[in-house]
C-alpha cells in the first residue's frame, strides 16, 4: 500500500488564481470538458472555476442553504442533499470525477460513500484534514486532551467531524476497497505546500488530497 503512495506523483500547488489553493489543486487534476459531481460543494467556488476555466459541466450537492444561495449566485447547478443519503440515484459511471473536499470526516459512513463515489465517477478526488499531524498527536499524547487545531477547531462535544483519520488510515481504506491512488498532494492548514511536507507527510501534512480510481483487476 505504501508503495502505491510513494509512486504517486506529489503535486506542486498553483497559486494566485483566486481559488482556495486546495481547490486549485483539485482543479488542476480535472481534465477539461469533463463532467464533475462535487459532494459538499460549499459555495460552489470549485465548480464555478471549472466551468469558466475548463469547460467542465457539473453539479454540486450541498445541505446548507447559505451555501446553496451562494452557488445559485455563481450560476452553479446545486442540489440540496444530505450526503448521508448516499448516491443511489446517480447512475454508475455518470461522471468523470466525483469530488469530496473536506467532507469525508463529517459523513456517517465514509467507507460506503467512498465506494459510492467510485461507482458514480470514473475517478474520485478526496481531501480531508490529517489527524496524524504532529500537533494533534502531541495534544493527545502530551496534553491528554482531544486535539483542537487550525483545521479542526471544534471541541469534542460539538464537532461535526465524527470520522477523523490519518493519511495512512485513508490509504489503508483505499487499499481495502481496491482503489488506486493516482495522485496525492499534502499541504498545511493554509493549503500551502512546503518542501518539508513531503518528508513524513503523515506527521507534517495538515491536509491530504487524493486522486483515486478503482484498481484494474489483472
Amino acid at each position: 500500500m505504501n508503495q502505491t503512495v510513494s509512486t504517486a506523483p506529489t503535486a506542486t500547488l498553483p497559486t494566485g488564481n483566486g481559488l482556495r489553493s486546495d481547490l486549485a489543486v483539485i482543479a488542476e487534476w480535472i481534465a477539461p470538458g469533463t463532467r464533475v459531481l462535487d459532494l459538499g460543494c460549499g459555495d460552489g467556488a470549485l465548480l464555478a472555476h471549472l466551468a469558466a476555466a475548463r469547460d467542465v459541466r457539473g453539479y454540486g450537492l450541498e445541505l446548507d442553504l447559505d451555501n446553496i444561495a451562494a452557488c445559485v449566485d455563481r450560476g452553479v447547478n446545486v442540489i440540496q442533499r444530505d450526503l448521508d443519503e448516499g448516491l443511489a440515484d446517480f447512475d454508475e459511471g455518470s461522471f468523470d470525477y466525483v469530488v469530496m473536499s473536506q467532507a469525508l470526516q463529517v459523513v456517517h459512513a465514509p467507507d460506503r460513500l467512498l465506494r459510492e463515489m467510485l461507482r458514480v465517477g470514473r475517478a474520485g478526488i478526496v481531501t480531508f484534514p490529517n489527524f496524524g499531524h504532529w500537533s494533534t498527536r502531541a495534544q493527545l499524547a502530551l496534553g491528554g486532551r482531544m486535539p483542537r487545531t487550525r483545521t479542526l477547531p471544534s471541541c469534542w462535544y460539538n464537532t461535526q467531524n465524527i470520522h477523523l483519520c490519518t493519511l495512512r488510515d485513508f490509504e489503508a481504506l483505499c487499499a481495502e476497497q481496491q482503489l488506486e491512488i493516482l495522485r496525492r498532494a499534502v499541504t498545511d492548514a493554509a493549503h500551502r505546500s512546503r518542501p518539508g511536507l513531503r518528508l513524513w507527510p503523515n506527521l507534517r501534512a495538515e491536509i491530504g488530497m487524493y486522486l483515486l480510481r478503482r484498481a484494474r483487476r489483472s
Partner: peptide, 12 residues
Amino acid sequence: LRAGRDVSYACI
C-alpha cells in the same frame, strides 16, 4: 440529473 439537464434544487 439522469437526463443531464442543468438543474438546481432547494427544500425550504
